[in-house]
């Protein structure tokens, strides 16, 4: 592996490169692939909110009510909404990945179809969770 200086130097030299992503036609599958990674990183950062909520509960009634009002503010709701959408997307697409890991669904048509199923399921679960969450 290169040192930090070498890694930077490699970037500034114009060496022959293998074809870059940009030359391919952009597809739904490409967007969903990188979205899986982006939502994964976002969810990892979101665990801080989960930790804050649990910590407040351990610190007593007053701390818990402060945390509940922070999470219950419009900004808190915005974060939780984004977090829930990312969670359901990563969950549904993760199940799709598990099928691929088992060697299933690698035909182009199957990949197109499973992508749309994942997007639909993630959207439906997010909407359903919020309708139930706000109604109950």
């Amino acid at each position: 592996m290169e040192s930090c200086r070498e890694a930077r130097a490699m970037k500034s030299q114009s060496r022959p490169l293998s074809p870059h992503l940009q030359i391919y036609k952009f597809t739904l599958h490409m967007a969903m692939s990188i979205s899986h990674r982006i939502t994964g990183v976002a969810l990892a950062v979101g665990t801080i909110v989960l930790m804050y909520w649990l910590a407040s509960a351990a610190h007593g009634k007053e701390a818990y009510e402060t945390a509940a009002s922070v999470i219950g503010s419009w900004f808190g709701y915005l974060l939780i909404f984004g977090w829930s959408a990312a969670l359901f997307y990563h969950l549904c697409n993760g199940i799709r990945h598990l099928f691929w890991d088992a060697g299933q669904g690698f035909e182009i048509e199957q990949i197109k179809k499973s992508g749309i199923v994942v997007l639909g399921a993630a959207a439906a679960l997010t909407v359903l969770a919020w309708i139930l969450g706000l109604a109950i």
């Binding site: 592996m1 290169e2 040192s3 930090c4 070498e6 890694a7 930077r8």
Partner: peptide, 8 residues
């Protein structure tokens, strides 16, 4: 995404 021997 991180390719340098120190930072990685």
């Amino acid at each position: 995404y991180v390719h340098c021997a120190v930072m990685k």
